[in-house]
Design a protein around this nucleic acid. Sequence first.
DNA 1: GAATTATTATGACGTAGCGTCAAATAATGT
DNA 2: ACATTATTTGACGCTACGTCATAATAATTC
Lengths: 234, 234
Amino acid sequence: MTTSTRKQRELQAREELILDAAQSMLHQHGYNYLTMERIAETVEYSKGTIYNHFASKEDLVCSLCCRCITNLIDVFERAYQYRGSTRERFSAIGIAYSLYLQLNPMDSQNILTVKNNAIREKISKEKLIEMESLEREITTIAKSIVQQAIDIGDLDNKHQHHLSTIVFGFWSMHYGALLLDQSGIPLEQLGFSPVVQMLWTNANIFLDGYQWQPLSTVTDTARLFEKISSALFD
Amino acid sequence: MTTSTRKQRELQAREELILDAAQSMLHQHGYNYLTMERIAETVEYSKGTIYNHFASKEDLVCSLCCRCITNLIDVFERAYQYRGSTRERFSAIGIAYSLYLQLNPMDSQNILTVKNNAIREKISKEKLIEMESLEREITTIAKSIVQQAIDIGDLDNKHQHHLSTIVFGFWSMHYGALLLDQSGIPLEQLGFSPVVQMLWTNANIFLDGYQWQPLSTVTDTARLFEKISSALFD
DNA sequence: GAATTATTATGACGTAGCGTCAAATAATGT
DNA sequence: ACATTATTTGACGCTACGTCATAATAATTC
């Protein structure tokens, strides 16, 4: 029993070690430099051992992605706990998302990588299921705030059947914005402002569109942004 | 002179041939099946000749992407010409985008591929510039409608300095939604409705948020969607 | 129209990196 | 101490990219 759990723990520890090495390598030299061989060298195990942990390079990257979503869930939960109106708490989720990905550009990269079909095809079924389950978890947090807003009356209950549409809209807006940002489109050159700023404006407009109270027109949004972001990232 | 242009034309024709072959291969068997060797076989030229046209596999895929953006520009221009209010014309752009990518899922795939940093690194400078120029062109169309809306007064001119923010918000929302859709997240399973439908709802809410007249509350949006989409795709 | 030169096409070759598997090594049980 | 089971290893096979010397073809000159 103890033996078995010690083994487990050792395995687990090594897995983390590998993931850390991969992450740092990715961070420093990018995806193309990341090879199974190099990871093996770095952690001082053989390639075969790496393959005992991860079915493929893609599986490994997907695992990094799972870690990232786990981190995001953490931040989302802090946003969920934020003391304020439902609208503020939902906004907090948006801020959490955008600041997290801004602070960890490599993670946006990985998300983008894993979403690519060519890569996805090579990810094992199990890893995909793991990731899906995390994704379900994270959308659940967002959905529950919307539900609460409807229950309280901050959001008209004619939107009850739009519940997931609201979440989806908010999500896709952030997702799209951050991916556009990450993907080397020269936004400034095309005449755009900093992404986090535009996102905050548009998120507010979007929620105003749904008449989610209190509207941004009666709020000091700049100050709110500061408050929420320091509440989340300190 | 004539000789040179004939040469040019032959080259151009072959380039199209290669791109067609690649597109169809991609369509039928996916990115991982696509190899330079197989393309060469299909078009009955040698690998070296393919490399005379495209500096790398990534360059080739980027070229496909450029073709796709060119198509999008076409549809955007039709949207621009749509006879109706500025709001309808801007909405038409959203519909154009979402229906085009819905009808050509392989193109969304390619966009996703090309946006990936690992891939982008391998694309030649020239191709990237070519693509950026197309991207500039396409955003210009969207921006000009927003400008017209402000000039006419459909959109309050306090939004003048948000002009690009509006375009960016609209773009990112659509972009994010369609990528989420393409990237195998089991949206229905997570309790979401069909993407095009959610997008249409959210796009309207977004524009309502900016108070872009006439608001969706005084519009038969379902009918409008039908009208616009048949105007664009027939 | 033959000779020369310029252009273009070819595919064998070098290389990188993935993933496998038989053999070596370590751990565990008796 | 020996047998059995589990884990680790790295050489090997394979695929696919991209190159380049050579061959083939086209253009030009005389």
